[in-house]
């Protein structure tokens, strides 16, 4: 089903669908028709607005929107939609939801995906049963996406799996990181947003609804090797490196000389003081005191000899 709609129709459709869905499920209140781009370059901004947050409950999913083309004045932008499939353990893949994104064509020929939105189908009763089995067996819950969004599935599907027990929080928390290169999806990393340490406990979810987080990631630009062309000629940089050592204080630079010098000086001073003391005491007491001492010593030795 491919429909071509004018903007007015589009608005109408969304208003209607919003009315229909607000009562049943949370929908992002983000305005769809704005044209400002959210930066998707690099994947560093984890908290950037390209992280869409969707919550679906066990209500019937919103009607699938068809692939449309925007009017001619915004020819470089096109809407695109691709499906998410899931599998329980060894089972075959079945549709589980759909991503819609805007494909922006750049003047230089490249195309990038922006403004990813995700709508997840809620689990049917059968799927709930299968998932419970996975939880009991600590088995894998797998998802897959086409490797090319323009002509799915591209060369192959990109698959990602997680132990089903890892998804369990209050409800079911899931986190998609989709690595793209233009219109191609390289890989999808699927898992829980938090930690999932090894002895995984068996719990059953209290409510069967998904909290979905999605991130689009593009390749980062590698840092270039530094080029110091000016320094080769100027020699300024080498000169500049000499300056910081001169900022050190006098003490910091010469403490190893100053301390011994100080010790020597102190030593000399104390010695000088001792000398002075002796010299002061010598003329008054020296003559008299030494004489009796000598006599005493002489007498004692003479006594011993006897």
């Amino acid at each position: 089903m491919v429909l071509t709609l004018s903007p007015a129709h589009l608005l109408l459709l969304f208003a209607v669908s919003a009315l229909l869905s607000t009562s049943l499920a949370f929908q992002s209140d983000e305005l769809l028709l704005d044209d400002e781009e959210f930066g998707l370059e690099g994947g560093v901004h984890t908290k950037s607005p390209d992280l869409t947050y969707t919550r679906s409950s066990s209500s019937p999913p919103p009607p699938p929107t068809a692939t449309r083309r925007r009017p001619s004045d915004q020819d470089t932008d096109s809407k695109i939609q691709f499906e998410l499939h899931h599998a329980f353990g060894d089972s075959d893949f079945s549709p589980a939801g759909s991503f819609s994104a805007r494909l922006k064509s750049w003047s230089h020929g490249g195309q990038t995906l922006t403004k990813l939105r995700f709508s997840r189908n809620a689990f049917t009763e059968e799927e709930k049963e299968k998932f419970s089995l996975l939880l009991k067996g600590d088995d894998f819950y797998s998802i897959r996406l086409p490797s090319s969004v323009t002509n799915p599935p591209g060369r192959d599907y990109v698959i990602s799996s997680v132990k089903a027990r890892c998804l369990l929080r209050e409800g079911l928390d899931e986190h998609f990181v989709i690595h793209t290169d233009g219109v191609n999806i390289l890989a999808v990393n699927y898992g829980s947003p938090g930690a999932c340490p090894y002895p995984r406990q068996l719990r059953l979810p209290s409510k069967w609804s998904f909290n979905s987080h999605t991130i689009l990631k593009n390749s980062e630009q590698a840092p270039r090797a530094p080029v110091f062309a000016e320094e080769i000629f100027g020699g300024e940089g080498v000169e500049g490196e000499v300056v910081p050592p001169q900022e050190r204080s006098f003490w910091a630079k010469y403490w190893m000389y100053l301390i011994p010098l100080g010790l020597i000086v102190m030593n000399a001073v104390t010695q000088a003081m001792n000398m002075a003391e002796e010299q002061v005491g010598a003329p008054s007491a020296g003559g008299q005191a030494q004489q009796p001492a000598a006599i005493q010593r002489g007498s004692s030795s003479s006594v011993r000899r006897r």
Binding site: S147, S148, G154, R155, I159, S161, D181, N184, L186, A187
Partner: peptide
């Protein structure tokens, strides 16, 4: 069984 796959675009990598 396969649990994950990474598909490099054949025209660019």
């Amino acid at each position: 069984r396969d649990i994950w796959s990474i598909v490099f675009p054949s025209d660019s990598e």
